[in-house]
Simulated assay, not measured.
Amino acid sequence: MQTNKTVVITGAAGVLCSTFAFDLAQKGMNVALLDLNVTAAQKVADEINKKGGKAIAVEANVLEKESLEKAHEIVKQEFGTCDILINGAGGNNPKGTTSSEYFLKDDMQDENLTSFFDLDPKGIEFVFNLNFLGTLLPTQVFTKDFIENNKGNIINISSMNALKPLTKIPAYSGAKAAVSNFTQWLAVHFANQNIRVNAIAPGFFVTNQNKALLFDENGNPTARTHKILAHTPMARFGKPEELLGTLEWLVNEEASSFVTGIVVPVDGGFSAYSGV
């Protein structure tokens, strides 16, 4: 793996992407941590720098091109042009989520429940924008460096939801499916520019966003956790560091130079299991 490269990571303050940042910094890369929560990103950058790595935290809104352009200029001033872009920003919203897994007529009469017919178009729009546009816009901004250098590497973060839509979260599942599709489209579009585009589709990992759905206030597994683990042949959640082997392979120009347009599941067998 070549060192002294500059990697830009969006959503970098999150559990998974901060793990990516630590790992790549240890490999000798310059890491720019982009996040709307720049305070959280700065804490990660400080830890990386304390351990001898090179990292900066940059405030950026992945839904605003002007914000991304400003972040791009900061990265260029500090580290030079971008070599690797990891699109990790994303998430869900309660307004794009149903209360029940299966539709029941009585749900339409219960004001405390959100049925399919109650889904808020604005909430669904937000989820699609955050995941899809939040991948497209940073790519538009930072891949200009790739065109200039005639070389580049994009890694998008998709999800198991893209392959097997989970109950209750149609907006997030659809948005991540769009990310996977976009990964394939972009890989073809940029193929003759020496730019590779791939994605990682994590299975189930405990993050700040989903922790409350997976464990109750006492730390006990919820019913949804039991269902998830029952459909994961390895019968456990993944650990963030278990994504690093796939990440390191995809960023390594020698090891994966002929790999583009793929979505790699890292899921403990979830995508292979039919449920019976």
Rank of each mutant, 00 (worst) to 15 (best):
N4T: 13
T6A: 03
V8Q: 04
A12F: 01
A21H: 01
L24S: 02
A25N: 09
N30V: 08
V31L: 01
V31K: 02
A40H: 03
A41L: 01
A45T: 08
E47G: 05
E47A: 12
K51P: 00
G52I: 01
H72S: 09
E78L: 01
F79I: 06
F79D: 01
G80C: 06
D83E: 11
N92R: 04
P94C: 05
P94S: 03
S99I: 11
Y102D: 04
K105M: 07
D107S: 06
N112K: 13
D118V: 08
L119Q: 04
L119V: 12
V127Y: 09
N131I: 05
N131R: 03
G134D: 04
G134N: 04
I147C: 00
K151R: 05
G152F: 07
N153A: 08
N156W: 04
N156D: 12
A162R: 08
I169T: 10
S173H: 00
S173T: 01
A175R: 03
S180P: 14
Q184D: 09
L186H: 06
V188W: 05
N192K: 15
V197T: 09
P202V: 10
F205V: 12
T207E: 06
L213A: 10
T222K: 15
T225F: 12
T225Q: 13
I228P: 02
I228M: 06
P233C: 11
P240I: 02
E242L: 00
E242V: 01
L244S: 05
T246Y: 04
E248Y: 14
L250V: 10
N252I: 14
N252D: 15
E254H: 11
A255L: 14
A255W: 11
G269S: 09
S271W: 14
Y273D: 15
S274G: 15
G275L: 14
